[in-house]
Amino acid sequence: MCEIFCFNSNTPKQINECLECFYNHSEEHPHGWGLATMQSDEFVINKEPIKAACSQHLKDILSHPVIGKNVFAHIRLATVGEIISPNCHPFIESDDNNRSWMLIHNGTIFDYPPLEEYKDRENGDTDSERILFYIIDKINEFEQAKGAPSTIKERFDILTGIVEKLSKNNKLNLMIYDGDLTYIHSNMRESLYYLKSDEGFLVATTPINDDENWKQVELNKLFALIDGNIIFESEEHKNEFILTEDHEKAIEEFQKSINLEVNND
């Protein structure tokens, strides 16, 4: 599937070393890379549909200090969608109140019909981009009914309900940022870890250094971070994802088709 990474802190920090360790995993995740940072309250996003280790653009970025309070990264192993730039994470979209939302996803949506309606709206053809459209529609519906922008707690509660529904029968390791909150969710064992320190929060698919304090992200809960601290934590849902032979076969068949397309090109 993919690997995901985020850094959340109360003050800007340089995190080149962490990013270099993360992108070193790209040999097993060769179908694209992405990087998102917040600068002056705007997202700066770079991404390419090539292996991170082969990207001169990424090397150029990492040759300079990468500094931020909120930084997100992704390396892709395609399970849904072609190997093209619009399918690389992070995805970004605005709601009706001009709030920008960013999403990166590690997993596959095997069964959630409401996402199908977004196939005609998305820029690429991934289930991950559809998740973001779905979230924004639910936020818009709430704010239209309220007649005012949502609070951070209201947005957290909305996403808690969305995540619980989406996670049933699907692998849903997510990192989402709405300009205020960083949301973290995992529903598969040993697939997302965090390290809390004085520097802030690091979260990654696998530990990216030898620190012994990495811990598994608690399953089946949505967490919200601000300034390196958890400020909201949901109740635990029951939708743990366990990879079955049927899931593995579906993923293998798709990856075979990807390899055929690459070889034919």
Rank of each mutant, 00 (worst) to 15 (best):
E3V: 01
K13Q: 14
Q14L: 07
I15A: 07
S26D: 09
E27R: 10
H31Q: 05
H31T: 01
G34L: 08
L35I: 00
M38P: 00
E48Y: 05
I50L: 08
K59T: 04
I61G: 06
P65K: 11
V66N: 08
V66H: 14
V71M: 04
L77N: 12
C88V: 00
H89K: 03
N97W: 13
S100V: 05
N106K: 07
T108S: 06
Y112H: 15
E116G: 04
D120A: 13
R121I: 00
D127R: 01
D137Y: 06
G147M: 12
P149E: 05
T151G: 05
D157T: 07
T160R: 11
T160Q: 11
G161M: 10
G161H: 11
K168V: 01
N169H: 14
N170T: 00
N173C: 06
Y177K: 11
Y177R: 09
D178N: 15
N187T: 01
M188R: 15
Y193Q: 09
L202M: 10
L202E: 10
V203W: 10
P207Y: 07
E212Q: 10
K215S: 11
N220T: 00
N220H: 04
K221C: 12
K221H: 12
A224M: 05
L225H: 06
I226Q: 12
I226K: 13
G228A: 09
S234M: 08
E236K: 15
K238A: 11
L260C: 08
